[in-house]
Structure formats: C-alpha cells, structure tokens
C-alpha cells in the first residue's frame, strides 16, 4: 500500500534519511518513534507528497513520487486521512463544515455529505458540537474533529503526526483508542509520536524507530 524504496533525503544543513526501505500494508497499525529532529514529520509529509525524496521513491496507492504530476497530488491527498498535532482546523467555519470539506472536495452530493458527517461526528464523539467553531472547543475535541475530517472520506490510510502532542495523558489515550477503533474497521493507521507511555501500553502494535538515518523495527519486551 505504501512503499518507501531506498529513499534518501537531506535538508541543506542535515541529512535525515539514507537508503531507507519501508512498507506499510493494508489494515496495519504502525507507530513511528524517534527523537526530535530525526525526521518523523518529514517522513509523513513524503506520504502526502509535500516533500519528495532526493533519491529513491515513495509509492502510495500506485502514485509514484518520481512520476506523479502536480494535478494528481490533490487526488492522492483525498485518499489519505491526515491528522496534525496542531489540528489544522479552519477557524472560519463550524465543526460540521470543517468535517464536510473533504466530501465537498470529492464532489459529493449535499444529502450524502450530511449523512456521512453526522455519522462520523457520532463515531468520534463530538456530535453535539457540530455547530461550534474550533475556537470554542477543547484541544481534545479539536483533535477529534480533525480525526473526523481525516476519516470522513473513508481513506485507505490515516496518517497522524503527533496527534497527542498537545493533549493531557487521559485525553491522549482517548484519542489513541479512537485511532485503534478506526483501525479495527480496516483503515491502516500510521502514527508518529514521542509518547512512549502509549507506545509501551500498545506494544502488540508494529513499532518502527528512526535511528541513524534509517528505520528499524522495534519489539518491546513484556
């Protein structure tokens, strides 16, 4: 589903990845850990084709980073659900409109949009807040809305960049539980985090770590 084939990437001042090969399959739940500045966000942004590797290729649902055309990038992004640490909700529209946006972008009819948005708001637990604006919500609620927006279009994969970064431990675990539920329904989930407590509690899940400019599989012992 997602393949990183021999990718290398450097910023002018820092080399981040050297010949990394990595794969995420359909329905998997994968944690990505690594110290700050090691390239977790950069790696996720390669999936969204915001950033391209200087060597090698990233293949996401058949879209190859080496050959993708610019007009195809929005098409790819509509197949991926992205959750950000800072939620990236639009403050000029309410919860309903924020969540409905990917469906409008997909050209869906208003009746169907309504049904889908209310279903997903119910699923993530912010149904009652559908008329509220992002600034009226708590951090946890905003992250739930952000997750609702990411999954409303039924993406193949949900990519979350530090989804619990700004949340307290209790709310953080609630968010992770939500991601697990989404994964149970068949959506692959790829979560970058530095919340080792959560990673430890979910040690049955696949865990990869950025180490020495490469990705290594990690197994946490009981």
């Amino acid at each position: 589903m997602i393949n990183f084939n021999n990718i290398s990437f450097s910023y002018p001042s820092k080399e981040l990845f050297r010949n990394v090969t990595f794969r995420i399959d359909k329905g998997e739940f994968v944690f990505l850990i690594g110290e700050s500045g090691t390239g977790k966000t950069t790696l996720l942004r390669m999936i969204n084709m915001e950033i391209f590797p200087q060597e090698g290729e990233v293949i996401v649902y058949g879209f190859n980073s080496r050959f993708i055309k610019k007009p195809e990038i929005p098409v790819l992004r509509r197949k991926i659900g992205f959750v950000f640490q800072d939620y990236k909700l639009l403050n000029d529209r309410d919860v309903f409109e924020n969540v409905a946006l990917p469906l409008y972008l997909a050209g869906m009819k208003p009746d169907l949009i309504k049904k889908k948005v209310f279903n997903v708001l119910n699923e993530v637990g912010v149904f009652d807040s559908y008329k509220k604006y992002p600034q009226e919500l708590s951090g946890g609620e905003q992250q739930r809305v952000s997750i609702a927006r990411a999954i409303v279009n039924e993406p193949y994969i949900l990519v979350a960049d530090e989804p619990t970064g700004n949340l307290d431990p209790f709310v953080s675990f609630e968010i992770i539980k939500l991601l697990l539920n989404i994964n149970h329904k068949g959506t692959a989930v790829f979560v970058a985090t530095h919340n080792y407590e959560i990673v430890r509690r979910l040690r049955s899940k696949r865990l990869v770590q950025i180490k020495d400019k490469n990705l290594v599989e990690v197994v946490i012992k009981e």
């Binding site: 929005p74 000029d92 946006l101």
Partner: peptide, 15 residues
Amino acid sequence: ETINIMKLIGASKET
C-alpha cells in the same frame, strides 16, 4: 493558512 489547509486535505488548484 486556510489555503494551506485546503491544499493538505486534497483541494485542487481550481477549487
């Protein structure tokens, strides 16, 4: 910021 978010969630240039 709005434009950036729109781009990230898959809005095309025309949209």
